[in-house]
């Protein structure tokens, strides 16, 4: 009997260590993909597929010993260039003055590629999947499965050779694809791309000293938060909505952001829309209208909107 239980526990131990090893391997892949997008000099193009809509971008990145530079060009929108030098992001516009923020990554890129592993591993389990051929390259699948079902899942395919991400699918909790990020062209070079070298030294406007933090006097309360989310204590003001906005909250789980807007009632029905993985949920009411925008399921958005009092 002793021997039997000994054998059983040995088997359980072997299986558990196997799982632990697989998990470690998957996080090693995650490290590899982050290392690729943060350390390599590259010139790539990618598309973002949201339903029937396609957005195309060109994305360049370079590093010298002391400086990092990243350039994102939305090809479908003329007149906007997004540039990051170290931790300053510039939105360069042709017809208006540049808009400058402080951020260590460009928010228009998948935040998954830049957020620290410790933060991501709090929210997700990593599983290494099978390999497949993608655009003629050998791709390794990495699945990030949300620990809480309210969060979307990610499937990443990374180049087996360089670790560069080739495709990122955002899937709902029912594993329905909502959004696809897909690299169409990729060139990794040992040297800094020439056009980035010029931008490295270009004269750019200084970031604004501080953001005006005069929040609207909120008369409402948010009584519930989705698992893992917390309120951003002092979100920036929204000048263009100042007249209509009654209350506003910005929530984050470190990887995703959800906005909750409270406005006067427009007497329109409760409705939900989807822009790729972003849900837009409008909760109608007699006195106020609550709009929830963010990468959450409609159920979560409904619950969040209902919690406004």
């Amino acid at each position: 009997m002793m021997r039997f239980s000994g054998v059983c526990s040995a088997i359980v131990l072997v299986v558990l260590s196997g799982f632990a090893h697989a998990e470690q391997e998957a996080w090693a892949l995650f490290d590899k993909v982050q290392h690729a997008v943060q350390q390599y000099n590259f010139d790539t193009s990618f598309v973002v597929l949201k339903g029937t809509k396609v957005d195309t971008y060109r994305w360049l990145h370079g590093r010298t010993d002391t400086q990092e530079i990243e350039h994102l060009i939305p090809l479908d929108t003329s007149g906007v260039d997004i540039l990051r030098r170290d931790s300053v992001v510039y939105y360069l516009l042709t017809d208006r003055p540049a808009f400058v923020t402080l951020s260590s990554s460009i928010p228009e890129l998948p935040s998954l590629l830049f957020e620290p592993k410790s933060k991501v591993s709090e929210l997700y389990n990593a599983i290494a999947g099978s390999s497949a051929v993608m655009s003629g390259r050998n791709a390794q699948l990495l699945r990030l499965t949300a620990k809480q079902s309210s969060r979307y899942n990610y499937w990443l395919w990374l180049d087996a050779e360089t670790g560069f991400p080739l495709r990122i699918d955002t899937l709902s909790e029912q594993q329905t694809p909502l959004e696809r990020w897909l690299v169409t062209h990729m060139q990794i070079s040992p040297e800094l791309p020439e056009n980035l070298r010029a931008l490295m030294d270009a004269d750019l406007p200084a970031p604004a000293d501080s953001i005006d933090k005069a929040l609207p006097q909120t008369s409402h309360q948010l009584t519930w938060l989705p698992d893992g989310y917390q309120q951003v204590t002092e979100p920036a003001t929204i000048p263009q909505l100042e007249n209509s906005l009654l209350s506003y909250w910005l929530l984050t789980d470190g990887l995703h952001q959800v906005s909750v807007f409270v406005q006067n009632s427009q007497r329109l029905p409760t409705q939900a829309y989807r822009d790729g993985a972003t849900t837009i949920f409008v909760q109608a009411g007699n006195k106020m209208e609550v709009t929830v925008i963010g990468p959450v399921s409609i159920d979560t958005a409904r619950q969040l909107a209902a919690s406004v009092q």
Binding site: T101, P107, I280, T291, G294
Partner: peptide
């Protein structure tokens, strides 16, 4: 209105780290 709210949300995401 929704487009304006969506833009506001994106703007918030953009400046969040700074805030």
């Amino acid at each position: 209105r929704l487009q304006a709210l969506l833009n506001a949300h994106r703007q918030q995401v953009r400046v969040m780290e700074q805030a």
